[in-house]
Simulated assay, not measured.
Amino acid sequence: MLTYEPGDSLAHGLDPRGKLAVQFGLAVAVFGDPTVRGFAVGGAVALGALAAGRLSPLRVVRAYWPVFLFLSVGPVVGGAALGEPWFRVGPAVESLRSVARVVPVVFVSAVYVRTTPVRETRAAIQLTVPGKIGRLFGVGVGLVFRFFPVVLRDLRATRRAVRARAGERRPLRDRVERILTRSLQRSFLRADRLTLALRARCFAWNPTLPPLAFRRRDYLATALGVALAAWPLVARLPGRFIPVA
């Protein structure tokens, strides 16, 4: 699981609001224009984001391999049939096209997580969404970003402990039950400790967050996000503007 790592890349220096705009715009573009042209735009943006964050695509695949494994099963399930023919190419290709839309979004999201501190993400959300709703979203995102990697580490530690005690010799159902039970116990214990820590630190809904300021490159990133969000509409204009694939 990727987490924030300090650095001096281009993506590290961008305002989180600009990076969120690019993510939102990319999601709208790839899902709103499911054509070869839309896939090409999404792939180009994803490669550009990886280069801006100095993040290897192989590292993203290793970190999010359960997501990619789940996506890879989609075309197989979509093309499977209960009778002759046992596998249908048309539905499999359609499912593959749906899966391909998600891949660029995952890569860009990985770059965001790798290059953006949690406090800046919370500040960006609370500045974008006003009032108590924004503060609630900011707190929720901050807790998820901090809590989820810890839960994953506990899960891996439980799996290593089971293997160290010759757990591989036990039936699969028994292993899964032991790992899930112990992982849930650790997660609830973590949640109780987190609640106590928040109370001990006088948790505030509106703490002093890091100041955010747009620079020229942040405006460019935001403009890119707006352009991506408008892409499906532009692609459907008459042929004299952009030919529809």
Rank of each mutant, 00 (worst) to 15 (best):
L14H: 10
P16S: 02
G18Y: 06
A21H: 10
A21S: 14
V22F: 10
F24M: 13
A27N: 07
V28R: 02
V28N: 01
V28H: 04
A29F: 04
A29P: 08
G32M: 03
D33T: 11
P34M: 14
P34S: 13
V36L: 13
V36E: 04
R37F: 14
G38H: 02
G38E: 02
G38P: 05
V41L: 14
G42A: 02
G42L: 08
A44V: 10
G48F: 01
G48C: 01
A49S: 12
A49V: 03
L50I: 11
L50A: 07
A51I: 15
A52N: 08
G53T: 02
L55E: 03
P57Q: 07
R62E: 06
Y64D: 08
V67H: 09
F70P: 00
L71S: 07
V73C: 11
V76Y: 06
G78A: 13
A80L: 15
L82W: 10
G83K: 14
W86N: 05
W86A: 12
F87R: 06
V89Y: 01
G90S: 13
P91Y: 00
A92D: 04
V93R: 13
E94P: 00
S95I: 06
R97I: 14
A100L: 15
R101I: 10
R101K: 15
V105H: 00
V108N: 04
S109Y: 05
Y112F: 15
V113L: 15
V113R: 09
T115A: 12
P117F: 09
P117T: 12
V118R: 00
R119Y: 00
T121W: 05
R122N: 01
R122P: 03
A123K: 04
A124S: 06
I125Y: 08
Q126R: 15
Q126K: 12
L127W: 05
L127H: 11
T128G: 09
P130G: 12
P130K: 07
P130I: 15
G131Q: 07
G131H: 07
I133H: 00
I133M: 11
I133G: 01
G134M: 05
R135Q: 12
F137L: 14
F137Y: 15
V141H: 04
V141P: 04
G142F: 13
L143D: 13
L143K: 05
F147L: 06
F147I: 01
F147Y: 14
F148D: 00
F148K: 05
V150H: 03
V150M: 07
